[in-house]
Structure formats: C-alpha cells, structure tokens
Design a protein around this nucleic acid. Structure first.
Lengths: 112, 112
DNA sequence: TTAATACTTAAGTATTCACTTGACAATACC
DNA sequence: GGTATTGTCAAGTGAATACTTAAGTATTAA
C-alpha cells in the first residue's frame, strides 16, 4: 500500500476540510473549541462578527467533519470532531511520506 | 510547555500555510511535487489553466513555505518544502492534543 | 401569557481571489 | 543574428464567499 487508498468521496472530504481550515475565523473557532465544548453565542462573543456569521462558519465546519454540534433545548453545543482533523493530518502525512521516500532513494543512489 | 510556544510571526505563517492549502489547484501542485521536483511548465501541462496562473499559485506556495523553487538558466525547478508542511502539522497536532487531553481529564472525573 | 433568550433563515452587499490576456525579459538553439 | 523556449509582470474580469441586516422560530423564564 503506497498510500492511503483513494476511497470514493474521499477527495471531496479533503477539499471540504482544507477549505474550512483556510479561513482565519474558522481556525479561531477550532482553537477555542479545543479547550472544550462551547455554545454558539459563547463562541460568537469574543469574535467581532454577528451571530449569523458564526452560524454560517459552523455549518462549513460541521459539513467538513471538523466540528460536531448537538442542540439541547434552545442551546446548540459545539465540540471538535476528530474525523476532520484526521483527514487533514492524513493528507499532509501522505505528502511528507512520499517526499521523504524520494529523498531516501536519492541518498541511496548517491551512496554508490 | 502545554503547547508550541507562540513565537512572533508564527500566526501569520499559519494563516499563509492554511490559506495556501485551501485551494484545490495548489494541493494538486503539491501532490505532483511530492513525486519529485518539476519545472513550472511541466507543472502547468496537465492543469487546464494558463502558465501565468500556475506561477501565481507557486508564488503563494513559496511565500507560505510549502514549496521551494530555484531558477537555473531559463527553467525554474520546484520542489516541496518541509517547513510549510510542519507548520500545518503542528497546528493540527496542537488542536488534537488539547482536545484529547480534555477528554482524558473528563474520563478521570467519570472514573471516580 | 408575556417576555426574554438562543438560535435560524433568507436576501443582499462588498470584498477577496483565481484566472485570463497581452506585453515583455532572459536563456538556449540553429 | 534570428528564433523558439521558458518564464515574468500588470491590469482587468468574473465568480466565490464572508459578512450584515432583518424577520422568524423554538425554548425557557417571570
């Protein structure tokens, strides 16, 4: 197995995850959530944007599997979802591994 | 040290790296480069965009430390730069580590 | 039941950003 | 020298998207 198998729909996941991570506000949300679960309005308070904007960011984060939310009563609680992190970590690991394997082979040739 | 130290300018690096990774064409370029160094025009050939567009993507990738390029004669050779990968990997690892530490402490409480 | 809280949804705006075009520069080739 | 190759730069265009406003829904509290 040279690399993680290309499962159907996986590519789309990679796109969703890295697109979600591309926005600084969404990364701020993830940084806050890594300290523990937070409600939507508590999440919005320190950010200088409206609650509606935060909800939109949360939609993107949830679609990409980086955040999981659950609504109990009238408050929605948000927490980090490991699945999205794994997708990003795996893609980066694949790039690094292929690249470093190549450097190894190059080293072998130079050693001769 | 609970987390990687917050060095000055580090935040900007994180932003540059994840913004660069957010575009599907730039990720394709990195995937191609993880197989080995390639010239700009060879990089552009399989992509359905102009050479100028590829050059612009390369500028973003180089500014973020994900790619290193070197011009010899009239051909510029592009290769993956591990530094950019490390920035992304570190940020993800920090998020995961904080999150999982929290789950551990929660487990400890529940065990009592 | 009235009021306040905690979101939700839709529509509009303004900016960012990927991409093209076209002109130009430097190097290799004949 | 002349010509093809390989890349660079600047300006413009169109689409994606982050954000706001405004109106609405469901849940809790008084």
């Amino acid at each position: 197995m040279p690399e993680s198998k290309a499962m159907p729909g996986k590519q789309a996941d990679v796109h969703r995850v890295f697109h979600a991570l591309g926005d600084p506000t969404r990364r701020l949300i993830l940084e806050k959530l890594s300290a523990g679960p937070v409600s939507v309005s508590h999440l919005a308070a320190p950010l200088n944007i409206t609650l509606a904007a935060v909800v939109q960011h949360l939609q993107v984060l949830e679609d990409s599997g980086l955040v999981h939310t659950e609504k109990i009563g009238r408050v929605r609680t948000c927490r980090i979802d490991s699945a999205g992190l794994s997708v990003a970590e795996q893609w980066l690991a694949d790039r690094r591994s292929l690249w470093e394997k190549r450097l190894d082979r190059l080293g072998d040739v130079l050693d001769e």
